[in-house]
Structure formats: C-alpha cells, structure tokens
Design a binder for these strands. Structure first.
Lengths: 154, 154
DNA sequence: AATTGCATTGCAATAAAATTGCATTCCACG
DNA sequence: CGTGGAATGCAATTTTATTGCAATGCAATT
C-alpha cells in the first residue's frame, strides 16, 4: 500500500501540482528523466493511491456561487447510526463542499457554497438544520477567499 | 467575460467534475455531441475563465500530512499594508491550504496541514503567530475529513 | 414562406500525447 | 568484481487532442 517515494517521485508530484497541464514529456524534462520512466512513476503512484486522481477547478463565482459560509455544527444525538446518517447526508449535498468532524466546541465544520446570502439562509433553515442529529448551527460568512489550493507540500 | 452557458455546457461541466479522466470522445458520448464541438466548448469555457484549470488530487495522509487544523485568527493591526502582507505570507506557506477573510468573530480562518500535532504546535509558535498583524489564534483540530470536494454545483 | 447571415456542428485529416515492448544500464548485494 | 532485479530510454504503437472545412441549424429580415 504505502511505498517509499524517492526524489524523482517528489519532483514529479511537485511538477504536477504546480503545472497540472504539463505533458509527460515536459514533466520529464523538468525532473530530468525521459518520459517513459516518468510516466511509469506517475502510474505507480496512481495505483498506490498517492495520486487520488485528476480534477477540474471551476470558477465558483462565475458559476453563480459567490458565497462561502462556514457552518459550525453541534450534534444533539451522538449515536453512531445518527452520525453516519448525518455524514451521508452531507456527502449527498453538492452545496456542501467540505466537512470535517472536529474536536473542541463544534462537532462538525462545513464549508457551504451559496448563490446569495438569502439562498444560504434558505439552505440553513430548510436543509442544514434538518440533517440527522443536528442541534445548533453557527454560521460565519467568508468575505473573500485569500487562498484555496489542493496542493499538498511534497 | 461572462457568457451564457447552455444545457450542453452544463452537462459537460458536470461530466468533467464527476469523471475528470474521461477523454473528449467519452464526454461527447455522455452529453450527446460529437467530440469536436464538445472540445471546443471546453476550450471556450477555459478561455472565459469558467474552467480555471486542471489539478491533481494527492493523498495528504499518504504523503505524511494526516493532520488538518482550522486556525481562527484575530488581527491586531488592520492597516491595509499589514493585511496585504499577512495575505501574501499566507499564500507563501504550502502548509496553509485554505484561507478566507471572515465576517464575525475572527478576521481570518485558515486550514493548515501538518505532519503531526506537535508539528502543528511548532508551526503555530514559529510561524503563524509571527505573521504580519496577527493578534490571537484559536486552533481546532479535525478528527476526520468527512467530505472534501472541488466540485461546484452546475 | 423564402433568404440571408452567423454560429454550431460533425467528418476527416493532422498533430500531439500517452502507452507498450524491448534491449540496455544501473545498483545493491553477495 | 559478478549477478539479479529494478529502473531507464529508445522506438513503435495506440489513443487522444486539435484543426480545416463543408454542411447544418436557427434567428432575423424581407
């Protein structure tokens, strides 16, 4: 499952994260290998699960979702089936783009996309508050995204 | 800059978000076009900035960053140049994967990746607390990522 | 209802990129 | 030093992306 990653692999990952549109030949040039071993390393890392996959980054604002809200959720019913139902529901809602179970004050923190503040209010009242086990919700609005990356330090 | 997106475009975006590894021919099949117009629509959306770009999703845990921390930051000095310096510094640190300027209690919320809890403690003391303008920081640890997606509802 | 113009489509051709086979090279280990 | 297993790079093949161009569809106008 987990294997040792060497300097070449690391360079490749850095390269792919920095310039995801690069072809294998270009990646190979940058890391100092020919394209074949380079490509094979990528495939190995995909098979090993180190590379989860590719993805498209879309412009949330351009697509009509300019509002980012962090919702801190307190659960009132901590029974396992309820928590699982809650998490499944979260995964099922496209507006919820991130969810972490948390230590400390809140049980979960969600990042939610919305078309407008009013829209979020509706979503909060009609959906979030009715998710399984939900007690209280504390919403904070983002004024501006300063940094959002999927890149992991390698 | 912003143009109207039609049902085909929408289908294409959904397709690309759901199965980013698909070739244009396969996308075209799914949306009911031939590959050429399909490809051209993708390019148009890239040029228009609706598609920001592609990206690789790596396994943070496998790469040694199993710890997710949300750091809520209060700024003590709200002068514009200080805020800009703070934001620039944030962008410069690879461990900080997300940062939003916020309304409400905190001025900023950061999501930070760390190799361990101790590691985060070091990062907090040696780096975060010394970023320009930083007053107080309140850190909450994630116990588990329930959902993390880059997909935007379309 | 016919006509014109513009944008979009789809086919076919081309170019570029990914993928595979195979002989060679490089190391680690004896 | 040799030997074996893994990794490399070249060349060939397959797949995918990209472009040219003629045909189609559709809206506006007459």
């Amino acid at each position: 499952m987990d294997f040792k990653i060497d300097a070449f692999d690391r360079k490749i990952l850095r390269c792919l994260q920095d310039e995801p549109q690069l072809s294998m030949v270009e990646v190979a040039e940058r890391v100092g290998l020919s394209h074949t071993p380079c490509w094979r390393r990528v495939r190995r890392m995909e098979e090993a699960g180190l590379i989860l996959g590719r993805s498209f980054m879309l412009d949330a604002v351009g697509l009509g979702y300019p509002v980012n809200v962090f919702a801190q959720i307190k659960i009132r019913n901590h029974e396992e089936p309820v928590l699982e139902a809650f998490e499944a529901a979260v995964r099922g809602h496209a507006e919820i783009v991130e969810c972490f179970s948390m230590s400390g004050e809140s049980d979960y923190v969600l990042r939610v996309l919305a078309r407008s503040i009013e829209d979020y209010e509706q979503f909060l009242r009609k959906t979030l508050l009715h998710l399984p086990g939900v007690g209280a919700i504390n919403s904070s609005f983002a004024l501006k995204p300063v940094k959002v990356t999927t890149a992991i330090p390698v």
